[in-house]
Design a protein around this nucleic acid. Structure first.
Lengths: 333, 333
DNA sequence: CTGAAAGCGCTTACAG
DNA sequence: CTGAAAGCGCTTACAG
């Protein structure tokens, strides 16, 4: 144990023969204070390794210096590396500005965990990492009047949101498949309730429209969650002579690949495969998998930076649309 | 916006014509208080949806009602579903007792993020999710004198620790391979610096010892991190006529499987494969992969429960060793 | 059983 | 430029 008497601002004031006010000002840099006095205090602080009690500071300012990070709790999702990588970027940015991250796993149909951290005054702002078309969390946060930003788009323009351009990304990927002369392209994705999936679907349809072709509705599968569903879908697609399968996340893609492997269907020989967001889930696959890449850590950083600006009352750009990169690889060669 | 005037204990006292002390007692249940008075206060609180300011409460008690969750920041690790599942269990348990979880991603060689949350008084206790043989975090937390528990074992008996029995698990798995008459079994694992990997190695050696055979040192590979290393290792193992490969995590296993696939080596026909902790990384693999399963969410729950007991000053059992299950599947048939 | 008062460790008008 | 004092919203001896 180190000497445990937890130095306070009062101790320092007494020791130095100044007032607590003065010490406080020296630390915060706010308010007029003499150069010499400031230096004296700062030196003392450094020497004695004084750490202000952030809780007390927070109480006085009605702040917590915490931000809430909400991640979706549904099983399939929680294991996607996406959220961990977001968290990495957020954590890094937050800690640079002396904020900490309170994590809250919330179920799609129950936002009580989110409610708790805001009504208990545990956070100064919130980052939502996935948006629903009908989003109870968004509605709640708006009503509560607490600063928040969403990772992922919302229909609501009043909401500060940061997203990658999933629509363009999916359009471009689809276009490049169409350009190869493939026209029986299937799309498999998760819950339609998520904005991101909706955008990707939009991009897929955009590409078909631009090419003057009609996408076949029977080749679009949404709300797919489980491996078994994928198996059945791939089976029926093969019967229809599908040429290419685009999946909306790497989990679905690995299900597709497994099914194809089991049936000894060659990729890309007989069927081409492409996916979104290449994570470690597919990193070592053979053949390598064509996919759309996003800088998820940067996404987290941007979201966090924006939220902190809002909390500090600075101006922020309300919407940001980040880029993407398409990596064409063996699976669509 | 809802009516925003954030009810305080003072408002309630005034409204009800009692003292703040009384209101406080009614809420906390501590201290003598008349039945009627208590009910009156409680009713008012319920009706007006009063939420105590946890920060203020914390300041008065020098508590934060936060626990710190430390997860390792190295790239390869952070994507393992293990930590997310831990987090799920911890978050669930914490929120039941009105605690929240502050997350801190710390790099193996830099514990400053951990230091920050404890010196800033942001947490009442800490959970470490992976232990090193030489663990700077453990050393620091001991010195700081803050309650903490580790998920994963430590050599240090004074540390409260919760773990699955990795040693027995690995021994048993290895034994069952040996019992099949396989004796050229390879072991591939991550950093030796982690206690968990050390334990697994121990179990592997135990099994050989019990069987009276000698494990071949050239078949044990530790400190393996990247996919390319795995490729090289598998290549050399094949030349030596290896019969079975056991990997210490699902990431390494998927690398092994990819390499084998690429070389068109049949599993389990020519080489058998088994792994630890079956996560979604391997969930849909064909053939299905033999592996050791742990209830990671329970691990998180137990760790959290224990930490909260320590914080509340209750008695706890200092060490807990949780079980495991071995699922023999197609890959070792 | 109940309350006045001091205190947790800061910040911030206000006055000088 | 500096300080005394009130305040953030709670808790908790102490006294009655």
């Amino acid at each position: 144990m180190t000497d445990d008497k937890n130095l306070t601002i009062g101790d320092i004031a007494e020791e130095l023969g100044v007032s607590k006010t003065t010490v406080s000002r020296a630390i915060s840099g706010k308010g007029r204070i003499g150069e010499k006095t400031r230096e004296k205090v700062l030196r003392y602080i450094k020497e004695h390794d004084y750490r202000p009690n952030v809780i007390a500071k927070g109480l006085a300012q009605s702040r917590t210096y915490n931000i809430g990070l909400v991640i979706p709790g549904s099983y399939h999702l929680v294991e996607l590396p996406f959220f961990q990588n977001c968290m990495l970027g957020i954590g890094k940015t937050a800690s640079m500005l002396d904020y900490d991250v309170l994590i809250s796993v919330v179920m799609p149909d129950d936002i009580s965990r989110l409610r708790r951290i805001v009504t208990n005054h545990k956070v100064d702002g919130v980052i939502l990492t996935r948006t629903l078309l009908e989003d109870a969390s968004v509605a709640y946060l708006k009503e509560a009047g607490i600063p928040f930003v969403t990772i992922g788009s919302t229909g609501d323009d009043a909401v500060v949101q940061i997203d990658n351009d999933h629509r363009s990304a999916c359009r471009e990927l689809t276009e490049s498949m169409l350009a190869q002369g493939l026209d029986r392209i299937a799309l498999i994705g998760g819950s339609q309730g998520y904005v991101v999936n909706d955008n990707r679907l939009g991009g897929f349809l955009d590409a078909y429209e631009k090419s003057g072709q009609q996408p076949v509705r029977e080749q679009i599968f949404l709300d797919v969650e489980k491996g078994e569903e994928v198996e059945a879908i791939v089976g029926s697609l093969l019967q229809k002579g599908i040429e290419c399968i685009i999946t909306m996340d790497d989990y679905l893609c690995s299900c597709v690949l497994n099914t194809l492997r089991q049936r000894r269907i060659e990729v890309p020989g007989r069927v081409k495969v492409a996916s979104f967001y290449d994570s470690s889930l597919l990193a070592n696959n053979i053949p390598s998998i064509t996919s759309i890449q996003f800088d998820v850590e940067e996404l987290g950083e941007r979201a966090c930076k924006t939220l902190l600006q809002m909390i500090e009352g600075e101006m922020t750009e309300p919407h940001a649309l980040l880029g993407y990169r398409i990596s064409l690889r063996e699976s669509t060669a």
